[in-house]
Design a protein around this nucleic acid. Sequence first.
DNA 1: GTCTATAACGAGATAGAC
DNA 2: GTCTATCTCGTTATAGAC
Lengths: 213, 213
Amino acid sequence: MTVRAIRGDETAARVLDIAERFVQVRGFNGFSYADVAAELGVTKAALHYHFASKGDLGAALIDRYCARLAARLAALDAGCPAAVDRLHGYVGLYRGMLAEGRLCLCAMLAAEYHTLPGPMQAAVLRFFGQNEAWLESVLAGAAAEGSITLRGPARDAAVALVAGLEGAMLVARPFGDLARFEIAAASLVRSLTGDAFPGAALAGAAPARTQRP
Amino acid sequence: MTVRAIRGDETAARVLDIAERFVQVRGFNGFSYADVAAELGVTKAALHYHFASKGDLGAALIDRYCARLAARLAALDAGCPAAVDRLHGYVGLYRGMLAEGRLCLCAMLAAEYHTLPGPMQAAVLRFFGQNEAWLESVLAGAAAEGSITLRGPARDAAVALVAGLEGAMLVARPFGDLARFEIAAASLVRSLTGDAFPGAALAGAAPARTQRP
DNA sequence: GTCTATAACGAGATAGAC
DNA sequence: GTCTATCTCGTTATAGAC
């Protein structure tokens, strides 16, 4: 459980890249050091140099994942003047992962939560808190600008949206069907914006919004 | 991979009970025959008699889970005259599992999907189809009786609801906080019924509906 | 920083006695 | 139907050479 990692090391970063994909696709209990070593072309022992235990590797995985999320949320803050566009950009983050056949790292770890070492469990909870805190302020901002309608506390809407998006990925992925995600995500966003269903003949045309992963 | 199980066997049923809880709490890759054998007080070899391989055990687990679901949905059909009450009853099925610290069996297996043997994968997909088909007709019925408003196809609303509820359980469980589930579930149902947020001072008082696990 | 070698253990699964 | 005994393999992890 020694922490020898996280430093200006390029090999460690490649280990994290590979392990991250394994966790998002197969789960933390669904891959081994041998899998990572084979793909990286090194031995298992070499991996143990960078991450003494699998728990250390997992914790580093979550830390990096949270840091990357923070950067992406900051990019949305900087690039989207309207709060509602930040909201759509946020949905796009999830869509992009699913398009690669990946679950959200922490959604996977949430499923396996009770088998994880303590430090990983704590980090998973922090991840969701980080998401909800950011979303809460975005939703409050969107409500203030009049682009969405909140029927309760912004925090509650944030909690519901995170849960809904994670669930949409979870269920859509086995079907290999991105459209399933879109249906659920559109429904979630629509419950805030009140937009008509895309293509439905119920209300006026909704403004087409661009959104990329 | 021989199928020697599923018969009027009481031991097999106890094996399934124990294994089911392990899967819902720790995941299919998070427990072993040894775990089940220890809790049942038998040897691993005895388990292999009832379920030749772990994949056989897993497939039997899903089959029984789907059968039990069908019975519960039928009970809702029989016990709830109003479609909207069947909807609330359905939400209660999820709440009850989470209250026991369990994830939906097939939500867990959806996360681990890419590590599962083929027969289990197919069974997982059937489970979600079964849920969505039942919900679709309930939602269509509720729309017809005027207790909910659909902004698109009933099938889409069903897909979104299943995904949302599974996600609500997934995220709420690590926090050990049933209230997190309630927040997300209430938001999902509210997006159909249009009810005001409970206790919010935004619209007229919403009718208090009783809902039990 | 990466290697070989191996320890120490647990996994899923099988054979054959009772 | 359940047992003992065993097999084989994969797992995490460590020791020590290079």
